[in-house]
Design a protein around this nucleic acid. Structure first.
Lengths: 216, 216, 216, 216
DNA sequence: CATGAATGAGGTTTCATTCAT
DNA sequence: TATGAATGAAACCTCATTCAT
């Protein structure tokens, strides 16, 4: 749970945050386009309108940039499903969760794929910290599912695994886009995954839902 | 569908294949452990008992090694589920497919994760070629599912997507092992995913299966 | 003989001296531990509780800090033997001089070694200025020796060289400590060098001195 | 006593030695003129007619170059006094030893000063290894002195320290050349140090020697 | 007087690939 | 066929110094 410490020579928190934003903003496009290793710090400097020296004034290493970028991406993705566990009806909550989650992944699809690919370049501590963010997303799904099970609306044997599976089915939209985009629109994908998830959760809703749309 | 052409200065097909095997075998461990970019051709040469010069005699670039390695890995993973579409009973076939697929992923988990992470370093043609292999795996699931739907054993709206989802749920065991291994054994995972898939497929079997085991 | 001029933007001599003291005090430990080149101005700023900007307010360059530091060190080392030429008996004076000199070197051994190693990084003028300090130490020995020769107590052909040799034999305790400390205590070293010097100076005292102690 | 291992990608010992010679030869002038830190590997590459890449084919780091250079210098300096302990007459042997040693130092004076200054930039193992070479020189002096003491020609209380002192008095000619060259020729210096050493060694020879020459 | 953000040249080292042997 | 020496561009990162505030 301990925060990842990133070296900076500045003591002004405000400025540090600003500049780091500037750096990650500049790096984002380059990283997504060319990958972490194929992007040089000089390029990042140029793209973010700073000098190389200044960059190292606010971060300790190139790795730190990668970390900050992914962290920010995960947090953003996560924020879309915050508060969904407050919805009273579990079926509705789950349905909305799938919806929001998939749209969020769609919005940050590049980032999502990127995270899968480049997280290996982070040290253990950083990776652990990012996995924690991931687990916070799972926890939201988990609570919805648990409530549904308690209300006997869902029949899910292992809530934790089910939650993670939902997470991954969202990610799938991003990392298998080379296939999915050829066959489905986001709307269709959401619709279909919703059915799959609800029916796997053993709810009657799944059947009703399946009639209208006709996939492709 | 066109084959990826890899440069070689040798004309003896037999020898070329042998040497390429030798190269990928040497590279495998290094790539999995340190990643593609962190592995140098010199290291690969050492590990495979060849000289750097010889390596470039049989391949055209470092990228080619990456390609060969992943291709081989995917083929191996795929081969575990070959022939399953021959099974008459779709429910049994699907159940077996999930079983085999997950065990196969488990066996090649490093390779699976690696493929997710490093495929970005391949050029378009190579990536396309590897995706085709992937689709062949999906096709097997697809045929099983289609047959089940035809026999009215499964109620799956979109067979293609369902097949891909099954693929990904297998991969998930590899790329989320940091989480899954802490909570489940492979057996438990297979059991639980089988239930999820069968129940999502709308088969009665799912309910029966769920009663005995109690997850964790 | 001209003083080395060091740039400052301040006109208050008092303050300049104070701040320079502060700087060299902060730099001392770092320079001795990590060397001149391996120490950054930022580190010095931190260690001396000043900002980088302030440092450059009172000195002109990093080189200046090196100069001030060594100058101060040499002056301190020198001050231990000041006034010894006043002693009437040349034999006693010489003996005391060796004693004091070696103890002084021992006290500032890190500084002594450091001066040998890093003086090369100073410009010609600075180096010359520091060599003058060195010669003042030699001059003290020289006067003692000359007086001894005049009184026919010493038989030294070249007084100047002998004086410098005495200086160096003191330094030796510092820059060969990796060897000397393994075999001798400071007391033993002083005792033995005293004998060597007195006997080289052709005094009878040397023989007497050599009998009691048995070195090691 | 263990050899310092220096990385190389070549297995041909002959070639490695040749190229390392080439490197150190190129570095020598630059190091002596500008110092270790002020010399870049790029400069060394140019000076030695190799590419930067090639340099790193034969050494592991810049530090290694420094080590090789100093080692070679010390060995050369040492070789001048090899075999002197074979001389039967200790007085003659010692006299010759001082002579040879000082001339050797004179020949390699830049290297000698350089070694004093830059050895701090080597790691512990390397430094230790170089000190061993130093001790081999001392051992030669030691054996001569011991033999003289056995024959009652010398009266030296601590032979080991005396030997080291002789070493240092030689070095002194190099690192105090800024002073010594102004006042003495090498011949004079040798003459005077010979007297000092012989008289400190308590031999009658010293007195005889002192009469003819008149120093300056 | 005091600060510390900003700079950009330059440091060491690595590496995929070629080519003469 | 096989070798591995050679290359040189480019990687990440540091640092003394300045100057606007």
């Amino acid at each position: 749970m301990a925060q990842v410490k990133i070296r900076t020579y500045s003591k002004e928190k405000q400025l540090v945050n600003e500049r780091r934003q500037q750096i990650t903003k500049g790096a984002l496009h380059l990283f997504l386009k060319n990958g972490y290793h194929q992007t040089s710090v000089r390029q990042i400097a140029e793209a973010s309108g700073m000098s190389v020296g200044s960059i190292y004034h606010y971060i300790g290493s190139k790795e730190d940039i990668l970390y900050l970028l992914i962290e920010e991406g995960l947090e953003k993705t996560l924020s879309s499903i915050r508060g969904l566990q407050e919805i009273a009806d579990p079926v509705e909550a789950l349905s909305k969760a799938v919806d929001k989650w998939n749209r969020s992944i769609d919005e940050f699809q590049d980032m999502t794929v990127f995270a899968y690919q480049e997280m290996r370049n982070l040290n253990h501590e950083m990776r652990t910290r990012l996995q924690e963010i991931d687990m916070r997303a799972a926890a939201i799904f988990e609570r919805i599912l648990s409530e549904g099970v308690r209300q006997d609306k869902f029949h899910v044997e292992n809530v934790k695994l089910f939650a993670h599976t939902m997470l991954v089915l969202g990610h799938m939209w991003a990392f298998r886009r080379w296939f999915l985009r050829r066959h489905y629109t986001l709307e269709q994908y959401i619709q279909l995954q919703k059915q799959l998830i609800l029916s796997a959760a053993g709810t009657a809703k799944a059947q009703e839902d399946s009639t209208p749309s006709k996939g492709r």
